[in-house]
Every structure is written in structure tokens, then in C-alpha cells.
Design a protein around this nucleic acid. Structure first.
Lengths: 237, 237
DNA sequence: AGTATACAAGAACAAGTGTTCGGTGTCAAG
DNA sequence: CTTGACACCGAACACTTGTTCTTGTATACT
């Protein structure tokens, strides 16, 4: 069993914290001199000495003779995690970055019971603050930018276990197979509704999953499929 | 309306792609010379000239006389996105990074109908590949490391709209109020089950949400609450 | 033909950045 | 008291990295 390591010196903890916080705000690691300035170490050789010690402890990786050739290891993340502020701040920071990489627009509520207006510009207008972001393991193969989310209002899909207030993540597509749960746009009333979709020759049947509600029948030319439900999210807290 | 911009030159596109791909594998941007080597530009002044042009187009931000003082802008991400490989690879990369920052352990299946063994070491053993990660906006206030996820097996909670195969995200807590949907550990059988929780004086009632199933009654000393359901995720694809 | 612009290139230079050298001080062990 | 390890420090140096200078070619426009 490995001998217990001596605790990091105060300077070493300070250096790790600084590197970490620098990385939150910059797309590159700090220089030796930047580290020195931030940690009140006036000599580049003392910074270098401590970086060497941190490297020996497995908390840093360095590349020789490369500018900004520093990398915090995962062990260092955990080490810092024990002493820095709430993990939630870190989470939020990472999420914000991730959201900017790929985002699922969260549009207004979609009334499962009755169609509501979503606006003529389909899925393009959204508030950046409302974006949510999903694990790749949850996303099916395909382009993330084909996805969008809607919050459900109403209980017309309750037998499909989609409840009022749930968020449905949808894949943008214009074709629907019978039985797909889809969001459809009704041209005549300028609204969107969430239903099971069935072609019935000269008409389309939009079927609720609620025994107390009747299906809606519309002309195929009046309807445009906007997306298919891929995922349901519910906050029970 | 803004005049349509001239397309980027082949070299400029190549430079942007290289910077982007370099950033996927390094925690710092490339140098002028690294860019030159990768794009067959033998002169640092030509690289510099093109970087200046990209900066003028709003695709790059530079800091003068700072090593690796480059940053791709969001506009550049979109520009590249039109020509690079599947966005899914990008998503996966970002998510992998995020997962390493904060992770919700995805334990084995929890049988909603019958208790199953989850192991004596509560919630600490998990496969890193199974981690999923959630938007900060979906997480309630509190430490992310109090959360874990379980995949449901069985249909005992179907009237609570929790279906076989769903993922439930739980907050670690040891007290439960009547009516909370919780995972409880049964000492006598070394198993965990998902149920509504009710104190009934000298016993605890674990109530399924399925009219075809009977509640389970257990001694309060035999049961330990592990977590409360905060969120339900369902993949419908 | 002349001018302006875009793009290119090698070389030199300026500034940034990492590494090494020689030294000092503290502390624990012998 | 001496020695060795550790930590620290200023200065100098070596190398990396960004910027500028000068020159050249091609194209478009007047």
C-alpha cells in the first residue's frame, strides 16, 4: 500500500487553484510568469520548481520547451475539488461552455390538448438562456442541431406518459410514420400541437393519448410535421 | 443589409479547421509556426496575414504579443460546422469533457417491481462509461455529487408515469416524507426497490403505482432510504 | 501604362516564455 | 556542529513565438 503523501504546500495548492481558475476564463494555460504574478512568487525558477513538484505528484503534465505547455490532470481536478467552492459553480461553467457548443432550443409551451401559436419562424427563435443540453449517450445518432425541445401544456398525451409540464426533446423531420408522436404545424390556424400521427388517405388523424379526448382530423395539405419526439424529461422535485 | 462576403480562401478554411482540430486534442491553441506546418505555409508572415484576415471577418480573436493568443469565435464554430464532419463527434467530445467534470453515476437497473441487489457499497461503484450528465438548469440547487441515476426495470410505478427502461435521477437523502418516490435499501434482503414511501407507525409501506400490484410492508429498522426521485428521463427513439 | 489590392514569401527582429546557474536560508538527522 | 534535503530567489541565458520589413507576382480597374 502506497505510503501516505505529504500534503501539498500552500504555494502548490495556490498554484493549482490559479491554473484552474485561469483555464475557466482563458482558452490556454497560464505562463510561468503569470503564475508567479498571481501567487506572489517573484522568481520564475521557484514557480518552475513547484511545477516540477506538482508534476512528480501526478497533478500536472508538462511539455518541455513549449510555451504554455501545462495541463492539469484529472487527479488535480479532484484535488482542487476538495478545497474549492461549490461544485455547482464548476458545473454551471462547464455547462455554459457546452451549451454554446451545441444547444437544444427550448421553445414556448406546446399545448398537448389544443394547438397554440409558436410563430411563423419555425424553431429558429429562442432565448439562449433557455437552452438545455443533453448527454451524447441520450442522443440518437444524427446532428445535434436537428434537435429542439418543447415544454408540454395539457394532458392530451397522458396515456403515453407525457404529462403537463414535461419537456419533450424532438428531432426535426418532415415525414411521419403512423404511430409516431410528433409536433405538427397547422397552417390554417398557425399553431402547433403534439399528437400521435396517422395518415388516413385523404386526411390526417391527430390522435391524443387520453381517453377523454377526441382525435383531430385535418387536411394533409394543412398540416406540416415539425418533429418527432425522441425523449421525455420530467422534473419531479 | 450587409453585403455578402467573399468566400474564405482555401488556405483560410484550412487554417480554421486546423485550429479547431488542434483544440480538440490540446488544452491550448496552436502557434503561428504550428499552423504553418500543418497547412503547408512556409512563412510565418503568410500565416499572420491570413490570421489577420480571419480576425477582420470576425472568425478569430487575437491578443497581441501573447503566445498562443488565438481564440476561435462562435461564428467560426458555425462556419466550420458547415464543412466539418458530423456534429455528433463534436458533441461527444464536449460531453466527454463535461462528464469528466461532473458525473451522475448510472447504476444497474432498479427493479420497480421486485427488489434487486445493488451491492453493499451504496452508489459508489459505477462504470464511467455509463455516466450521463445533465444541464444545470435541470438540476435543482444543491451539490451535483449528491445525484445518481438508476435505470428502472419493471412497471410497478407506471401510474406515476415511470416506465420500464426509464432513467430516474435521484438526490441522495436519508429521510423521506409520505408520498415521496424513493429508492430504498432493504437490509434483510440486500436489495433496492423504487416505490412511494409511507411511514405507518410501526411499519413502512412501500407503495407501487400500479393497481395490479400490492404494497410491501417492512420494519422501519430494516429499511434505509437512499434517494428521492428528482427527474425522469425517457428515450422514445 | 499606371495604380491599387490581394496574396505570397524569406529574413530579420522584437517580445514572450521556459530553463539553468549560483546562491541563501531553514530544518531535521547524525 | 556538520551535513543533506528542501524551498526559495535573482539573474542570465536559451529557445519559442509573434511581428515587421522588403520584395515579388497576379489581377482588376482607370
Amino acid at each position: 500500500m502506497k505510503k501516505r503523501e505529504k500534503p501539498l504546500s500552500e504555494r502548490q495548492v495556490s498554484i493549482l487553484r490559479y491554473i484552474w481558475s485561469y483555464l475557466q476564463e482563458n482558452t490556454r494555460p497560464p505562463t510561468i510568469r503569470e503564475i508567479g504574478s498571481a501567487t506572489d512568487i517573484s522568481s520564475t525558477s521557484v514557480v518552475n520548481y513547484n511545477l516540477t513538484k506538482l508534476t512528480e505528484r501526478g497533478l500536472l503534465e508538462r511539455e518541455a520547451e513549449v510555451s504554455r505547455g501545462l495541463r492539469l490532470t484529472e487527479k488535480a481536478m479532484h484535488e482542487i475539488g476538495q478545497v474549492t467552492e461549490a461544485v455547482a459553480a464548476v458545473v454551471e461553467n462547464v455547462m455554459e461552455t457546452a451549451v454554446r457548443m451545441v444547444r437544444v432550443p427550448l421553445l414556448g409551451n406546446i399545448v398537448a390538448g389544443e394547438p397554440i401559436e409558436v410563430g411563423n419562424n419555425d424553431f429558429s427563435t429562442y432565448d439562449e438562456d433557455d437552452a438545455l443540453e443533453l448527454s451524447a449517450t441520450m442522443l440518437p445518432m444524427g446532428k445535434a442541431d436537428e434537435l429542439f425541445a418543447l415544454r408540454v401544456s395539457g394532458e392530451s398525451m397522458i396515456d403515453a406518459m407525457v404529462n403537463d409540464g414535461d419537456i419533450v426533446v424532438m428531432k426535426q423531420q418532415q415525414m411521419a410514420k403512423n404511430g409516431d408522436m410528433v409536433a405538427v404545424w397547422l397552417n390554417s390556424s398557425d399553431t402547433t400541437t403534439l399528437k400521435y400521427f396517422f395518415h388516413e388517405g385523404n386526411r390526417v388523424r391527430l390522435q391524443p393519448a387520453n381517453p377523454t379526448m377526441d382525435p383531430i382530423f385535418v387536411d394533409p395539405n394543412d398540416v406540416r410535421v415539425q418533429g418527432k419526439v425522441m425523449m421525455v424529461l420530467r422534473n419531479t422535485a
